[in-house]
Design a protein around this nucleic acid. Structure first.
Lengths: 258, 258
DNA sequence: CGTGATTTTGACGACACTCAAATAAAGTGG
DNA sequence: CCACTTTATTTGAGTGTCGTCAAAATCACG
């Protein structure tokens, strides 16, 4: 059992008030999948606060009352739950274009969210956000579609943890992770891995040693390279697909964090 | 690898046109969580066809074009996916009040759905259903909340399969299953289990033998009784909670099948 | 260059899977 | 209603994967 850092500054209140470039916001391609008209954009912009975080910062904590909705514009987050036996389970990783927040009124965060890198997000008051989307029913529907995609992606993840060997899970992780952020950080095949082996292990339901062994084996097979800490190069995509059991990578794995 | 029955009659077209008792429909308590006004009820009723199925019937099959939405009023269904290696994964069980259907236009069923008992459901044309809910934005929102609850329940299930021992998973299954249908079929503590050990195994990511062994052990411990095939009596709820690692049973496990 | 964190590698044991057989229950036809 | 078949479940024995514990190696950072 490992201790978990728990500093939790008041991101939710303090705002930089930098106007984000909503017109090109990635959220259009991911969680909300929607073109706003100019009026909608203006409405959005007026409502949002920009928050920033640094690597290792905790954005919100399991059990904390949740009254904000975030849309991530930069940086990477891990989102995890503490189990009753003290272990952690990483439910997913969030990046640009993804949403984070509890929509149900009066509820608490069921997860803790922590920065893997520095980053920033647009924050909305939940009630105002709900008013916004109910004013635009087609937006609610897009969000509902995103949620059902998320359910399907979770099914895939459940299968991964319930039925696959360690090596297969790591292969799947590499495909999911590199695929999800391929057009955001595509530096000639080098995929950045800002999370630790332990994070990956807690995401895949393995021990960190098993993850490390799987990485080593995939490297020995020539499927990947590990040039330096925090980076992978994928050399044999078909082999990884074969191992993972994927026909295609689940489309929007974790576009909507809760 | 086991063969899977694949007869798939045209439930989706043929309709009995029995008017259901919408005013008391369980869907109000589950997937839609919503009181319709009389006008809404009438609109609903006009739109719906009633379909029925028998035990073992296949309602829809993985890969089939999906253009209907079902709301289950009677009976129990299992919902599963065929994996690339020929194995099956049961994603969940559906019962009265639950919804089934793909909301995204032009997509296929990602699962096969099969009757564990005979039953019936109200079927809606997807496009008309979508029009209905966008006409009532608060309905879309309720459905979105249901979807996010489903995501949270899937997280719990992922944790179950990734981190728990066989005995713990079976304990969790018994709690989830008996809790979800407690006020529908509550015959003094006897919980009907219309699914086979194999179904349970494929739901929990175990072999059917491991499930059987877990049942035997829970019985030996005095936590449960197995009076006859297809039935359990739960004798020690706190012990099962302890084993499962649940603080509380995930609220709406699988109210929304895809 | 030294300290601490992360990652890798090794040895061993536990849990769950596979294969196999026995038992129990349900369905079928005389 | 009973013998027979079929299906579901239980139980046992052996094997493999992964977790745990431990130590070494690598890397980041001051």
């Amino acid at each position: 059992m490992r201790t978990v850092t728990a500093k939790c500054p008041s991101f939710w209140s303090g705002a930089d008030c930098v106007l984000p470039d909503c017109a090109n916001c990635l959220v259009r391609r991911f969680a909300l999948r929607c073109d706003f008209d100019d009026a909608g954009l203006a409405q959005l912009r007026r409502m949002s606060d920009v928050i920033t975080w640094k690597k290792g910062d905790t954005l919100c904590e399991q059990g904390m009352p949740a009254d904000k909705v975030l849309i991530i514009t930069e940086g990477l987050l891990k989102i995890y739950r503490l189990l009753t036996d003290g272990r952690r389970h990483v439910t997913g990783f969030l990046g640009p274009g993804d949403m984070l927040g509890v929509l149900k009124a009066g509820s608490e965060f069921c997860c803790t969210v922590e920065g893997l890198t520095a980053g920033r997000a647009c924050a909305y008051d939940r009630d105002r956000f709900l008013r916004l989307i109910t004013d635009h029913p087609e937006l609610t529907l897009k969000l509902l579609i995103t949620a059902t995609d998320e359910i399907e992606a979770q099914h895939e993840h459940t299968i991964l943890l319930g039925r696959r060997l360690a090596e297969e899970r790591v292969a799947a992780f590499l495909l999911i992770f590199s695929h999800r952020w391929r057009d955001i950080d595509d530096v000639d095949g080098v995929v950045p891995l800002p999370m630790t082996r332990e994070d990956i292990a807690e995401y895949l339901g393995l021990s960190l040693e098993s993850v490390s062994r799987a990485f080593s084996r995939l490297k020995a097979l020539g499927y990947i390279e590990l040039p330096r800490r925090g980076e992978v190069v994928i050399r044999n995509v078909p082999a990884l697909y074969q191992l993972s059991g994927f026909e295609e990578v689940p489309a929007h794995t974790m576009a909507l964090g809760l």
